[in-house]
Design a protein around this nucleic acid. Sequence first.
DNA 1: CTTGACCCTCACGCAACGTAAGGGTCTACC
DNA 2: GGTAGACCCTTACGTTGCGTGAGGGTCAAG
Lengths: 254, 254
Amino acid sequence: MGYSVGEVARLTGVTVRTLHHYDEIGLLSPGERTAAGYRRYSEADLERLQQILGYRELGFSLEEIAEILADPAADHMVHLRRQHGLLLERLERLRKMIEAIEFMMEAEQMGIKLTAQERFEVFGDFDPDQYAEEAEQRWGDSEAYRESQRRVASYSKQDWLQIKEETNRLYQRIAEAMAAGVPADSEPAMDLAEEHRAQISRWFYECTYEIHRGLGEMYVTDHRFTENIDKTAPGLARYLRDAIVANADRAQAR
Amino acid sequence: MGYSVGEVARLTGVTVRTLHHYDEIGLLSPGERTAAGYRRYSEADLERLQQILGYRELGFSLEEIAEILADPAADHMVHLRRQHGLLLERLERLRKMIEAIEFMMEAEQMGIKLTAQERFEVFGDFDPDQYAEEAEQRWGDSEAYRESQRRVASYSKQDWLQIKEETNRLYQRIAEAMAAGVPADSEPAMDLAEEHRAQISRWFYECTYEIHRGLGEMYVTDHRFTENIDKTAPGLARYLRDAIVANADRAQAR
DNA sequence: CTTGACCCTCACGCAACGTAAGGGTCTACC
DNA sequence: GGTAGACCCTTACGTTGCGTGAGGGTCAAG
């Protein structure tokens, strides 16, 4: 069992040489080698690779990535959360860049000549400050950063059980409503859906109604989610989806 | 007149070394040198630098950038348009990545174990195809690409006058409506605003109502636009803004 | 006429791989 | 059981886009 370099390469889109490189510098060494010296990557290795590629995509150097992943207190969820946050920042930056270009296109169309200063003011509003800030935030004083990171991670270790429990409790309550025959598009069911949304927003990310709808749809279309939710009570996934949709409609109608 | 390396560096956020490098490889050589051998950058040099940085941001290599900018048929507008398009693609890709991460966070929260394949399927939906496609589209067969580019560029050279004229005609008509006392939030004024939006969409980019609102706001807050528009008729900028807002309200109310 | 703040040209260094070169390994099919 | 073809290994030099000095001119201010 396990994957060869070529298989990993095909699976992930990186080249074999890259995997060799990561092995060379100790960033990702396969858990095993065959008798002939072939690299064998385990599932755990691939999870690590996914995190590596995520951080790489975000512009971290391989050395930085190694340090980030060396933190024993940070688990998969912590990394996902951090990457999610950084991606949102990027999205914001990209949006501003697009606006800047649209501005310049408008100016060009009207025949307005922008001076050099104006050009780079428009175009640079996101670059120097945002980028510098980002760099400092992510990796400013290496010591201070790691200390705070450790704290956040230990928080989430504690919170972890609490999150799981809260989630389960909520599912339990929704299942009870369903069992009691409460319609999915009734007030109390919608309130439960709203609680569900709030819970996600509190622990993970700002969950808009749009995103919430997407999640609800996923709960019934992706069998892994469906099965998992239906473990609490059969049919719960569908019921929850309907409540989510009704709740989103209610909120967005205003 | 002209800017020294240090000034350009401060203005644009790149380092002096980078400017030296661009000079070395012939990507951006300052138009002039002082008697002492100091580099002097002109406004035209800075415009070129802006385009260079735009393409660099988008991931093009310096060599590719040199080739792109070498096309004599492509003017500033063509580059802006291309960069705008590529940025929109990037935005889409980023959005998908964020969705993928949200999916995995949800899965993690529910305790669903994703296999390696699933993980990279989710995470790789945008990477291999999209990126390869992008790379081919942008620089696939160098010859074919340049040929098509030239056509697009020559189109836009021809179209250019037409665009200008159409724009001016439309402004003229709006000015006439204003002079005739047609209220900015009346049907005919809104229709003119809608025409304005359609014109932008046709020549430049998909101009949503949201973006159109932003443009309208800019017309009255940025004095350069205000003055330019008011050249057709005093007060036109404000009138157009009001019509745009009314039109957007009408369209989005549905 | 000197002191900073700039500017110049070499020139070496570095990250993150790409790209052979030269050579074993493994399944498959004859 | 031999050999073709796909796959794997290590070694090592090449490339891109600059960073980072070293050593030395230039220029406005006091």
